[in-house]
Design a protein around this nucleic acid. Structure first.
Lengths: 146, 146
DNA sequence: GATACTGGTTACCTCAAAGATACCGGGATA
DNA sequence: TATCCCGGTATCTTTGAGGTAACCAGTATC
């Protein structure tokens, strides 16, 4: 809660960018995770969301507020202080995020491996034959653009 | 399996388009659902995916093939016949899709209601006061553009 | 007076996904 | 001969999310 967010909580090298699941907009799921342990300030959110520009963070938070996923509370102090907090509805997204993370842990390696295999293979090729495709019977016939 | 796909299996009016969850690209989840009950042909897939252009369907299927989610089997007949089928990996996405559907069933109405409320409210307004926001104490101070 | 801090705003640009439209090859059928 | 079917391909245009860079108000501090 009072603990600062880990600036490296989102590994930029992590293949989560290849994850075929998206919750809301690009940054929404990460914002939800950042807010899981309690309310956070605008500037505080920018730390782990490295690279996000204030404009995009504002857009993301405004959209989430509109959808009832977060609340925004401004305190009339100076320097100004604004806190964002997950609503109950926003908190329900955590189960979905967990499901996506579990899937990635279990199956993303296979997906990346398939992608790798596909790229290093000369040509997967289209099949012909009255026979269905079978490993070994695949024939390269109609090579698209070489 | 042999049964034709229901052309209306994806209700265009359904608010699933507002669903804050996306699996793969725009059409990927729908393709997975179409293939759940067995292999399908290109033209067969176009029916429930009303509005998809052949170019986009080809792109979607090629990407899924590359990622090991579907297999493509061409039969040398005429007219040509090509069948797409879910792989085991592709089938694992179904649990994720079910989770997303369950979330939508349980929480999407609340999200849409919040959105509606937000749009019909004159201005949600930013808060001031040393006091945190509280229903009733919210004050409209710094109205953005109007 | 100059500078810094917070939480933004504004104008502009970029780039990839998606869509619109048209066309194709080759055998089968009328 | 003409047409249809199937599974695409080729181009062009649109759309919109996201990014870049600069600026701002109000207070406090140097």
């Amino acid at each position: 809660m009072a603990e600062p967010l880990d600036p490296e909580m989102f590994d930029p090298v992590c293949p989560s960018s290849a994850m075929p699941i998206q919750i809301g907009d690009k940054w929404t799921a990460m914002v939800v995770i950042c807010l899981e342990s309690g309310p956070r300030r605008f500037t505080e959110l920018r730390v782990p969301l490295r690279g996000i520009t204030p404009k995009v963070l504002t857009q993301t938070l405004r959209a989430m507020e509109r959808d009832g996923l977060v609340t925004r509370t401004a305190y009339d102090e100076n320097p100004p202080r604004v806190e964002y907090e997950l609503t109950d509805l926003g908190r329900t997204l955590l189960t979905l995020i967990d499901a996506a993370r579990a899937w990635s842990r279990d199956h993303l390696p296979a997906l990346l491996e398939a992608r790798e295999r596909h790229e290093t293979t000369p040509r997967p090729a289209l099949l012909r034959a009255g026979e269905p495709s079978r490993p070994g019977t695949a024939a390269s016939t109609h090579l698209h653009r070489q």
